[in-house]
Amino acid sequence: MADDPIISVRGLVTSFGKHTVHDGLDLDVRRGEIIGIVGGSGTGKSVLLRAVVGLLKPVAGQITVFGENVRDTNAEDYRRLRKRWGVMFQDGALFSSLSVQQNVEAPIREQLDMSAETRAALAAIKVRMVGLPDDARPKMPSELSGGMRKRAGFARAIALDPEIVFLDEPTAGLDPIGAAAFDELTAQLRRALGLTVFLVTHDLDSLHAICDRIAVLAEGRVLATGTMAEMQDVDHPWVQAYFKGPRARAALAQKESL
């Protein structure tokens, strides 16, 4: 059981009209790991995430999460599955008409029959766990900075104590200190809640700092998976350019100097 992958994608094909995004993509995610999904802009990282959480119907292929097929579930099974994962979209995707507190309460309110006081208390804890101050709770999303919105989106994603969280470029657009803090937060919450993290990112620092494994997307497939060290030896021009370019060397040097 423990060795079974928590997410398993086999032969995934997705396309928009004539434009094929994934063409026979395979990917396994192990329970409890932080897997970093990298790839150039437009290689279909976000589309992969949307397919795995069932927001987008693939043309072909099999996607199982917790051993259940995401594509063929009926509405009832899907609702049950959905409770066990949380998604944070790019830029947080907070409900703009609700306060931070209400945003975090929203999934609890929808999924569980819980008294208002308990719900409020649990949501307040989640808001603190992602490192937001208590006075951020009554604020509206438009009053928050980009980094705070991402944290609030993270709080909403973990509101129901999911087993997997999907994060779409959580550190994009954050300053390096904010990005490092977000990485630290992700790792810390993984430890505290036993999360599996599906992390779409461009950020080499995040890959170095917190990812157990990395999957590289290119040409509609997963080109390679492995640890950061193993990526150095992959013989593919894009992978070489990405992991051995000046930025990659800087990130590596920074990590070694720590």
Binding site: I125, R128, D134
Partner: peptide
């Protein structure tokens, strides 16, 4: 560990 995390993150005042 989990209890310690929650203890640390529980707001002091009632919500």
């Amino acid at each position: 560990d989990l209890i310690a995390t929650i203890r640390r993150n529980m707001p002091d005042a009632d919500v």
